[in-house]
Amino acid sequence: MDAYLPYILCLVLFCIGIYAVISKRNIIKIIIGVIIAEYAVNLFLILVAYRAGGRSPIFSSTQEILPEAMVDPLPHALVLTSIVIGLATTAFLIALAVRLYGKYGTFDISRMRELRG
């Protein structure tokens, strides 16, 4: 069980984000839930790539570093793009929230539903 403990803690983080998205009424809280779930997914990919006692995937010109001793560089590259995309989608969600605030004067989604009527 010990070898899976980081994965399980990362899963707890993901579940906290999903719970916030489902059960909160404030739009900013929902955006925070999305951000936390996204962090958990990025962390999970990096955890999968880790090698015990490994080195960073960067060669050095003054020091001999074996390719076999490196951690898996492929998830690092994919997570690098995923982080920037996550920031752009977060900005889009914030823009939507600011727009909804300008229209309804509140961040509470249940009151927006009442006003629509």
Binding site: V84, L87, A88, A91, I94, A95, V98, G102
Partner: peptide, 19 residues
């Protein structure tokens, strides 16, 4: 990336001023 993020930031700030 830099110009895109700065454009997003300027847009969010400018609308606040407008409001």
């Amino acid at each position: 990336v830099g110009a895109g993020l700065f454009a997003i930031f300027l847009t969010l700030i400018t609308l606040q001023k407008f409001e």
